[in-house]
Structure formats: C-alpha cells, structure tokens
Write a protein that binds this DNA or RNA. Structure first.
Length: 644
DNA sequence: GATCTTTGTCATGGT
DNA sequence: ACACCATGACAAAGA
C-alpha cells in the first residue's frame, strides 16, 4: 500500500485503493463517497505519474531509450523472437531428417548393437564418412530426436569408442600407424595403447579414435593438416614439442604458442596438435572417472603445463562445451586454479606463458623482443613495422620503469593517426578482449558467468576477418570498438609495464587468488598500482553495467506497475458507474416502496397521510414511527438557530 | 555542428 | 582496514 503524505493531506495511491478493494471492502466501509474516492485515485495516479516521469527523465538522461518502455515496441520484439524460434524449429526438423537419412544407410550389428555401414562401401568418400557415422550410432538414436550439441556428440563418442575398441569392432579406425602418433603427448614415447599399462586405459584407447573421428567430423583442412603434421612430429620425436628449457632461456624465444595461429595455416603445426590432443583430453575428462583426473593431476603430467592453452583451443572449437563445463565443473575449477597457479612458477611454464594469452601477442612472433615494448606494433594486417614502432615517443612505453599515467594513454588515444586506431581496429577483428576469457574460464570464475557465456559467440573468427582485409565484420564490431579500445589500453599498459598476467586475470580472479598471484611475482610500485587500477576499473565497469541493467529493469517494472494501475483505475471507474446506476435504481425502488407504504397508511378516520406532511422514521429498536414533517423541520430549524 | 546514446571511469557511500 | 559493490555524475566517442 502506498500512502503519499503532502503536508496535512494524505493520499491513498491507486495501489492502496486496490488493496482495499482486494480485501473485500468497498469505499462505503470507509465513509468515502465515490466522488471522494475518485478524486483521490485521480490525484494519486497523478502523483505516481509524476514520480515515474521523473524517474523516466532521469534514466533517459542516463541513456535509457524511450522505446524500451513502449509496449508496442516490446510486443514487436516478442513477435520477432517467436519468428526466430519457429525458424530454429524448422532447422532442427531438417537436421533430424538428415540424421534419419544417415541411419538409413547404416546396418545394425546384432552383436554389438552398433550401426555399421552397409556392405557396399567402396567409394572412398563413403569410407571417409563412415567412422563419423558409426561413432554417432548412439548419439543419433538418443536425445529424443533433438539435435545434440557438439559437446554432447563428443561425449557420446568418448563413451562409445572404448567398447568398440575392446571388441575389435570392424568399424573402428584400423590404423595403428595413426593411433600411435595420436597418443597424447603426455604418454611415454611411441607407446602403443596395449603397451602402456600405467596410463589410464580408458583414455588411451579413446583418444586416438576420437581424434580421427573428430577430424572426419570437422573435415577442416587445417585440422587435418595439423594432425598429419603432428603425426610426423610424433613419429620422429615421439615427444610433444613443448618449449624446452633452452628455448625458454633463449631471449629470442617466444612464449606465445598461439601466436602461430595468425601466421598462416602451416604454423598451426606447432600448436594445434598438442592442443588438439588436450582438447580431446578435455572432453575425455568429462567422462573419465574423477580419480583418473586426479591421478593425472597428481602425477604432474606434462600435459598440465599445456592444459591452459589446450582449454583455450578447446574453447575455440567447443564453445558450448566450455560453457556447459564451466557451469558444471565448479569442483574442478578450484583444482584447475591451483594447478595453474602452481604451474606458473615451473620452468616449463613461465609467467610469460600466461601473458602469451593476451591478444596482442598473437602477432608478436616475428619480433618477440621488441613487441613487449611496443604495444601498438601488432597490426595484424601487415607484418611490417607498425606506425607506433616508428614513433620514438611511443617506444618509451616499453621502459617499464616509470609510472604509466592515464594522461599518457589519453595522449595516445587522441592521436587519430597513431597506432592506437590501428590497435583498436585490430582488437575489433582479432583481439576481442573476450577472447581472452575462454582460456581464462578454464580455471575461473564464479560470479562472472554471464560474461563467460557471452564469449563463445566471439570465438568464431572468419578467416577473412583474420586476414584483416574484411571490412564488413569490422563494422559489426564497431559497437564493441570502444570497449576494445579501453581494454587495449589496459592491455597496452600492462604490456608496457611487463605485467605477467592477462587483464582478464587481473580483473576476474578472486581476491585470494589475485593476492596469491601478486605475491608470487615481484612487481614494482608502478606495476602494482597499474594492476590494482586495472582491477578496479574492470570491476567497476562490470558493476556499472549491472547497475544500468538493474535500472532499466526497474524502469520496466515501474512501467508495468503503471499499466496495471491504469487498468485497475479503469476497472474501478467502471465499477463506480455501475454502482451509481445500481444506487439510482435502488433509490427509485425505495421511493416507490415508500410511497406505497404511505399510501396504505390510514388515520383513525380512514384518511390517508400525505407524504409531504409526514415521513416514516425508524428508531434504533427497529420500530417505525410516523413523524410529521412540519414538526421535524421546525425542530431542525430550531437546532440550526441554536447551534451557532 | 548540435544532440542523443552508449560506455567507461571516478568519487563516494554502504556492506 | 580492506575489498567489494552500487550508484550518481561526468566525459568521450559514435550515431
């Protein structure tokens, strides 16, 4: 109930009236005439309107769009959304039909219960497709006909393959030459699955087959090439090409494994296979026994050192899976977090490895030494010297020995021809700051789930986009440009001061982990100040976004309240007019009844009483008296004269 | 060029 | 005391 007090006046708001009505009482119970009630309702509505209008204006000042409050606008949006849902449904129906068609080409193996290809499978194209179809024999029959997410398919693949392998199913990928090199890098050199008892057998059998099926599934030439190269690597060295200690100690060595991704397909070789393997491991992990996982972690398997990147890679190809896992594996997150922080100080995983996940580093492979000091030089379009690197004034940022003030950055920002614009554009295309988060999401973070869920949609980078020549996607990202610029500023600052963590980490790590991270690295004053600034800004940015969101929701809520109040008012007005009509009718009936009673009254002589001279009055005990009107008016007039 | 919108940031107060 | 959050106010950039 809302009661608005103004001076000595007390107004019941419409809601208050609603409460009164809702409680079964009417205005008559409160000695309120309808007119009075109406006036108050009108008045209070006006009050509400004024208040809401003030709020409205405030929020319009703050950027709230008027159409947000427009009911018609929202209705249109709702219809659009429904249309989209219909389209999605149609699409899924189509997919289901395709699945049925696929199944029709398969034959049910009565022994294994698996679907195997029909006998005439001579066409090479068919054989290439067969493993995929076979591996999905379960997944296509499950899920109630719903199309399954890629992560679910993978999980089913993982669950399906060990059985097939154990039974020597004819449909399994019968390429030992493939299986051996496909072994995860953490396994002993060239150890066939049957010869490596210490490793989890589940994983050993599954991964190679999964991998190939996955390769078929994706049919990505890059991935295939990537895999084949890894096979060669593994056959030759039988070790995963992790950076060795000499590489790390080499100042020219770049700790940016992902950097190769942007430099052409062939460069994927250095990174893709291992992470691909880990990607598969990641999917296996989701179905592997928990103790297996813990054993893997406890053994400090080399793969742990690459899990970080691997998950990132996994995230690229399994955005949904990561989202699901991130929501469903909180128990693991803590372990991961500790694992990461533990591994940070290990020789094979220097702090710079973490930093390597920062977007700018993807372009720094060519000049690893210089880049850390030239935050703007990674254009992503050309490998030539960046505009910034040609600017002597900018190179001083790499000093790392002075305080990097905001004004410095503003100076940089205000130079339209400077590298900042290139930098921001580059970020729009390749350096989505959100791209950092998937990698980060592996070992964090609670409380930022909404942010994390938004990430995967930015992960699919068009090859044309990556080339930096496509303008269309860039225009799509224009809205994000500013945030990119801002993040890139922080990235630049962090880079300039050689801060060994990503901005995402700085912002999103829980305070304990953040402090632990800080304590593990010897940061100077400037670095500490910058890190805390970045964290404060990042958190405040999110807070501001939440605040605005809440404000909008509150405005929308108030608007709906207003709508319902208006409806209530309409209803009350209708009820009021109805009651007035009823009252009028009752009065007429009462009058006619009164006259009828009067007409039947007779005095001692049998004469009727005149209604103008007499009236009927009821006493408190229920008896009725016939009172002469003259006397009554006389008394009343006497009262009137005496009362003042 | 004026105006509006969006977004990031700072200051401040509350928890 | 400190970290975090919420929010008003302001500024910058884009539409």
């Amino acid at each position: 109930m809302i009661i608005i007090c103004q001076g000595s006046n007390v107004f019941l708001s419409s809601a208050a009236v609603t409460d009164l009505i809702g409680s079964g009482r009417t205005a008559r119970h409160f000695n309120l005439s309808f007119e009075e009630l109406h006036m108050e309702v009108m008045h209070s509505s006006q009050q509400d309107m004024n208040l809401i209008d003030i709020l409205w204006k405030q929020d319009i000042d703050l950027g709230a769009r008027r159409e947000v409050f427009d009911y018609n606008h929202r209705q249109k949006e709702h219809e659009l959304q429904r249309q989209r849902e219909l389209e999605e449904e149609k699409r899924q129906d189509l997919l289901r039909e395709q699945e049925k068609a696929l199944l029709a080409q398969l034959q049910l193996d009565e022994e294994t219960g698996e679907y195997i290809p029909c006998p005439p499978t001579s066409a090479p194209l068919q054989t290439a497709v067969t493993p995929l179809e076979v591996t999905q024999n379960v997944s296509f029959t499950e899920g109630n006909g719903e199309t399954m997410s890629f992560a679910e398919c993978l999980q089913l693949l993982a669950e399906t393959f060990p059985v097939e392998e154990a039974e020597n199913s004819s449909v399994c990928l019968d390429t030992p030459a493939v299986s051996a090199p496909m072994m995860p890098p953490e396994q002993p050199a060239a150890t066939p699955a049957a010869l490596s008892p210490p490793s989890p057998p589940h994983q050993q059998r599954m991964v190679p087959d999964l991998e190939q099926a996955w390769m078929e599934l994706l049919s990505l030439p890059e991935l295939q090439q990537c895999l084949s190269m890894q096979m060669e690597d593994t056959l030759e060295t039988t070790t995963y090409p992790l950076p060795n200690s000499s590489d790390i100690q080499n100042p020219n060595y770049t700790f940016y494994p992902m950097a190769d991704l942007t430099e052409g397909e062939t460069n994927n070789v250095n990174v893709c296979p291992a992470e691909f393997m880990n990607t598969l491991n990641g999917s296996v992990t989701s179905v592997a026994p928990a103790d297996t996982i813990s054993q893997m972690k406890a053994a400090e398997d080399p793969v742990l050192n690459t899990n970080f990147s691997a998950e990132h890679f996994c995230d690229i190809f399994y955005p949904n899976a990561i989202v699901e896992e991130s929501s469903g594996q909180h128990g693991l997150e803590g372990n991961e977090m500790k694992t990461i922080s533990d591994t940070q100080n290990k020789p094979s995983f220097t702090p710079l490895d973490l930093y390597s996940l920062s977007p700018g580093d993807a372009f720094e492979k060519g000049k690893p030494n210089v880049m850390a000091e030239l935050p703007d030089s990674d254009s992503g379009i050309s490998s030539n010297t960046s505009p910034n690197s040609s600017s002597p004034g900018k190179s001083v940022y790499g000093d790392g020995s002075f305080i990097y003030s905001d004004s410095d950055m503003e100076e940089m920002d205000q130079n339209p021809g400077s590298a900042e614009s290139d930098y921001s554009e580059m970020f729009s295309i390749n350096f989505q700051p959100d791209d950092l988060l998937p990698a980060f999401s592996v070992y964090s973070i609670t409380g930022q789930s909404d942010q994390l869920e938004k990430k995967p949609k930015h992960l699919k980078t068009d090859p044309a986009e990556e080339s930096g020549h496509n303008n269309a996607p860039f225009t799509k990202d224009k809205l994000k440009k500013r945030s990119d610029v801002r993040l890139s500023r922080d990235e630049q600052r962090a880079k300039a001061l050689k801060i060994p963590f990503t901005v995402s980490m700085i912002i999103n790590l829980p305070v304990d982990d953040f402090n632990e991270l800080m304590s593990k690295h010897q940061l100077n004053e400037a670095q500490l100040a910058l890190v805390r600034d970045i964290r404060r800004r990042g958190k405040n940015k999110v807070a501001a976004q939440n605040c605005r969101k809440r404000k909008m929701e509150s405005i929308v809520g108030l608007e709906s309240d207003l709508d319902s109040l208006k409806e209530e008012k309409e209803r009350l007005l209708d009820e009021k007019s109805q009651n007035a009509a009823d009252l009028k009718e009752m009065k007429q009936q009462l009058n006619s009844l009164y006259l009828e009673v009067f007409s039947q009254l007779r005095d001692e002589k049998g004469h009727s009483y005149s209604p103008s001279e007499y009236s009927l009055q009821q006493s408190t005990n229920g008896s009725i008296f016939l009172v002469p009107r003259v006397k009554k008016t006389f008394i009343k007039s006497e009262d009137k004269h005496s009362s003042p």
